[in-house]
Design a binder for these strands. Structure first.
Length: 464
DNA sequence: TTTTGAGTTGTTCGA
DNA sequence: GTCGAACAACTCAAA
């Protein structure tokens, strides 16, 4: 008899209910990971390192992680037959791809007289558990978050198993999956910024709770400062358990910073809940009338945005941070997304796709729900007239320009007064900063005021 | 069933 | 320079 633990986005040993229950059974284990072929490039880079870390952690406890690629149902069924597996353990997953795989697996395993046990692991709450008084699912954040608080997060974190008694079976070699970039190797900035894996996730949380959390409520909006937790990729891959994060943060007291951080954890939860309700959240607007939105994409604008060459400093800084580090500051994500969707009138799905390719975390729930929120077609979406002015946002949240100077070095020598509006700088100021507009840095594709007007008109047309 | 209050993150304008 | 109102109307959730 044996148990099979199927790792998905729960790449950790501590507080991993699927693994824990399998270990508790006392039976031999098969520890399996199946490559998720849908991953974007940055996501694959992270996955490589996360799997490397997990393999090492497992090996350190006497176990062995099996790596396989192919159809999950076939791979698991074959292992079940070959090793007399009587139960498969896995974390519950909410992405449509996994939901479909689980349905098929359930059928296949029943035929083999093998159980399928799924555990609450990647989210704080099972999505069907948080309901309105009428029994439906929420579509608005605030009442959703209240219901979560009332439900409460259980404090029963599970220890990492000390030893793992696992069966060695055929496994791919991680390097043969070729998840890392080779030529060109664009991952240098990512290596410098991140430590994927469970140990890295815990270190990140610890560092955050040791300092930045205190000022999180305000500092999280300032991209030039390390004011956020930067846990999103770790959380996406399940290198750290959300309830562990929740209770560690709560143990830090009940200040404004902690309170705001917990609320952000509930936003992650809300996105998962929305994905549960809208499996096609990455493609289809939740508010149906947006199917007819009068987008007006101009040739070359999407590429300029992707390359950080829009001519709007804060937008370009964000897009370059994304490209270089596989991550973008939350405040800047909103500004960049808003500029693409509202000023450039490019369909939000194209921005979502770019983020999907570039973000280490590339999370279906968070990415889909957030892009829809910015575009105005999502749950609880921003009112149409809420158009971010990238100049005001830049001045407000990157006042000294630390962020822009870092990621848009050609502007680094501009004085504060013109840093967010280089197109308004007199020639001699630009020359003194060693640059010429249109040569070293582009003129804006669309000026903030013009973009705002175009966006408002487009939204007015939609209403008609 | 109907009513009521409220809804992440903003900007502009005019007093 | 600061501050409050307007920017729409709709849908959600609860009573």
């Amino acid at each position: 008899m044996a148990r099979l633990v199927w790792f998905r986005n729960d790449l950790r040993l501590a507080d991993n209910p699927a693994l824990h229950a399998a270990v508790e059974s006392g039976e031999d284990l098969l520890l399996l990971y199946i490559l998720d072929e849908r991953a974007g490039a940055a996501n694959r880079w992270w996955l490589h390192h996360s799997l490397e870390a997990l393999s090492k952690d497992i090996a350190g406890r006497g176990g062995h992680l099996l790596l396989r690629r192919g159809e999950p149902v076939e791979i698991i069924s074959a292992l079940v037959k070959a090793h007399g597996v009587n139960a498969v353990h896995a974390a519950r997953a909410y992405e449509p791809f996994w939901r479909e795989a689980d349905r098929a697996l359930d059928v296949a395993l029943k035929a083999l007289d093998c159980g399928l046990h799924r555990y609450l692991s990647t989210s704080l709450f099972a999505p069907e558990r948080i309901t309105t008084k009428a029994g439906g699912l929420f579509g608005v954040f605030t009442p959703f978050s209240k219901a979560c608080m009332e439900a409460g997060v259980p404090e029963d974190a599970l220890p990492a198993p000390r030893t793992l008694k696992s069966i060695k079976a055929k496994s791919d070699a991680l390097k043969d999956w070729a998840l890392l970039p080779t030529k060109p190797d664009w991952a240098g900035g990512m290596r410098a910024a991140w430590q994927p894996g469970e140990a890295g996730a815990r270190a990140r949380l610890k560092a955050f709770l040791a300092g930045p959390v205190k000022h999180y409520a305000t500092a999280r909006d300032v991209p030039g400062v390390e004011g956020t937790s930067r846990l999103s990729p770790h959380a996406h891959f399940g290198e750290i358990s959300p309830r562990f994060v929740w209770h560690q943060a709560k143990a830090d007291g009940d200040g404004k910073g902690v309170e705001t951080f917990l609320k952000e954890l509930l936003w992650r939860e809300f996105s998962i809940n929305l994905l549960w309700q809208h499996p096609d959240i990455r493609q289809k607007p939740i508010r149906g009338e947006f199917e007819d939105f009068p987008w007006n994409e101009r040739q070359g604008h999407l590429a300029a945005w992707q390359n950080g060459r829009t001519g709007i400093p804060i937008v370009d800084a964000g897009m370059r941070e994304l490209w270089q580090t596989g991550w973008m500051h939350n405040r800047v994500r909103m500004i960049c997304a808003s500029y693409l969707v509202k000023h450039l009138l490019v369909p939000w799905q194209k921005g979502e796709q770019w983020f999907w390719d570039c973000l280490c975390e590339a999370d279906e729930a968070a990415n889909g729900a957030s892009w829809q929120w910015v575009a105005g077609c999502g749950a609880d979406a921003a009112p149409y007239f809420r158009v971010f002015n990238p100049v005001l946002q830049g001045r407000k949240f990157d006042a000294e320009g630390a962020y822009v100077r870092r990621f848009v070095p050609e502007l680094a020598k501009l004085p504060e007064a013109y840093l967010h509006v280089p197109w308004e700088a007199p020639e001699e100021i630009l020359a003194k900063a060693g640059m010429k507009l249109g040569r070293d840095y582009p003129r804006p594709l669309v000026l903030p005021a013009d973009g705002r007007q175009a966006a408002l008109e487009a939204y007015a047309n939609l209403k008609r």
